[in-house]
C-alpha cells in the first residue's frame, strides 16, 4: 500500500581531513549552493537527494562526516553501512593529500569490503594556490583502483558528475531483483574496472 517515492536507496559517505570541503561538496550537490563560512561539522550529518539513473529513482542518503580527529570514533561507526565512500582532499592543502592513505586504511578497517570508493581533489578553482598536482591525485587513485575527479564546490565543477558516477557504479553492482528490471549489465558487477580521470 505504501507508495515509495524511489526505487533504490544508496547510502554514501563523505570522508577526508577537516576543512577540505566535504560539507560544501555535499551542499552544492543537494542544494546547488555554496557558502564560504567555515563551520566545522559536528560528528555526523546527512542530506538526501533523489536522482534518476537508468530509469530508476535512486534516493541518495549522503552522510557527511566531521574530519576532525576528535569525532573519529563516532564517524567510523558510520562506515559500515555505506555503499559508496567519497574520500575528499584539498588540492591547496598538501597535508590533506598525504592523509589519503590514512583514510584509505580507515575504509579498509571499518567499511564493507565491497564498498565503492572515489577520490576527490576539491577546490580545483583555486589553481593559484594549488600544491597537489592533478597527476598525483590520478596516480594514487590508479594505484588503488578507484575513480578520481578534481572538483570545486564553489565553482560547481564535477560535483554532480562525481555523485552520479558513484551512484552508477553502485547501481551496476546492485543485484537486480525487481521483476520489471531490464538491466542486464551484470558482467561488470564485481567491482570497479575502470579508472577515470576527469578534467577540472
Amino acid at each position: 500500500m505504501a507508495k515509495k517515492t524511489y526505487d533504490l536507496l544508496f547510502k554514501l559517505l563523505l570522508i577526508g581531513d577537516s576543512g577540505v570541503g566535504k560539507t560544501c561538496v555535499l551542499f552544492r550537490f543537494s542544494d546547488d549552493a555554496f557558502n564560504t563560512t567555515f563551520i566545522s561539522t559536528i560528528g555526523i550529518d546527512f542530506k538526501i537527494k533523489t536522482v534518476e539513473l537508468q530509469g530508476k529513482k535512486i534516493k541518495l542518503q549522503i552522510w557527511d562526516t566531521a574530519g576532525q580527529e576528535r569525532f573519529h570514533t563516532i564517524t567510523t561507526s558510520y562506515y559500515r553501512g555505506a555503499m559508496g565512500i567519497m574520500l575528499v582532499y584539498d588540492i591547496t592543502n598538501g597535508k590533506s593529500f598525504e592523509n589519503i592513505s590514512k583514510w584509505l586504511r580507515n575504509i579498509d578497517e571499518h567499511a564493507n569490503e565491497d564498498v565503492e570508493r572515489m577520490l576527490l581533489g576539491n577546490k580545483c578553482d583555486m589553481d593559484d594556490k594549488r600544491v597537489v598536482p592533478k597527476g598525483k591525485g590520478e596516480q594514487i587513485a590508479r594505484e588503488h583502483g578507484i575513480r578520481f575527479f578534481e572538483t570545486s564546490a564553489k565553482a560547481n565543477i564535477n560535483i554532480e558528475k562525481a555523485f552520479l558516477t558513484l551512484a552508477e557504479d553502485i547501481l551496476r553492482k546492485t543485484p537486480v531483483k525487481e521483476p520489471n528490471s531490464e538491466n542486464v549489465d551484470i558482467s561488470s558487477g564485481g567491482g570497479v574496472t575502470g579508472w577515470k580521470s576527469k578534467c577540472c
Partner: peptide
C-alpha cells in the same frame, strides 16, 4: 561524553530522516 554526543546525533539524524519522509509524503 562522546556517547552522549553520539546519542544526540543519532536521534537528530533519525528525526531528520523521518521529517524528510513526512515531507515527501506531504508533497505526494
Amino acid at each position: 561524553t562522546l556517547q552522549e554526543l553520539r546519542d544526540v546525533l543519532q536521534e537528530r539524524n533519525k528525526l531528520k530522516s523521518q521529517l524528510i519522509v513526512v515531507q515527501e509524503e506531504l508533497q505526494g
